[in-house]
């Protein structure tokens, strides 16, 4: 099947549109493979570092879903930037339902 389209809004406002995201891949890997600014993913997707923080666009929140308890704990370490629509994108897998999703990168440090 054809790829899924994902839009990342980088910290300087640039929109990076990725049209060939592969189903099952984590959004953090998609971002890193496409050089999205501000997504570091230091811990390699282990939900341990908080360096792949994104805000999910309001209309996509239900589709993307909420963080689980473990992700919530890691997000709690970045409370200065944490919002209701915060997610760590290493914990979100590309799926057909996410086609068109828009995420805003929250820079770490």
């Amino acid at each position: 099947m054809s790829g899924v389209t994902i839009t990342f809004v980088e910290p300087d406002g640039t929109e990076k549109i990725i049209e060939d995201a592969v189903v099952g891949e984590s959004l953090m890997n998609v971002a890193k493979d496409n050089g999205v600014e501000g997504i570091w993913g230091d811990c390699g997707g282990g939900c341990a570092c908080g360096t792949c923080h994104v805000y999910v666009d309001e209309k996509w929140q239900d589709v993307v879903g909420k963080p689980d308890d473990i992700e919530e704990m890691t997000l709690d370490m970045v409370t200065e930037a944490q919002q209701d629509n915060s997610r760590l994108c290493c914990q979100i897998q590309v799926s057909p339902e996410l086609d068109g999703v828009r995420l805003t990168v929250v820079p770490a440090e």
């Binding site: 811990c43 939900c47 341990a48 570092c49 370490m77 970045v78 409370t79 200065e80």
Partner: peptide, 21 residues
């Protein structure tokens, strides 16, 4: 602290401590 998780005890970047959790 609101920036609690910004500490560098585990390092930062590609060599960030793998055993942090």
């Amino acid at each position: 602290r609101k920036n609690l998780g910004s500490h560098v005890a585990f390092g930062v970047g590609v060599h960030r401590c793998i055993g942090a959790s």
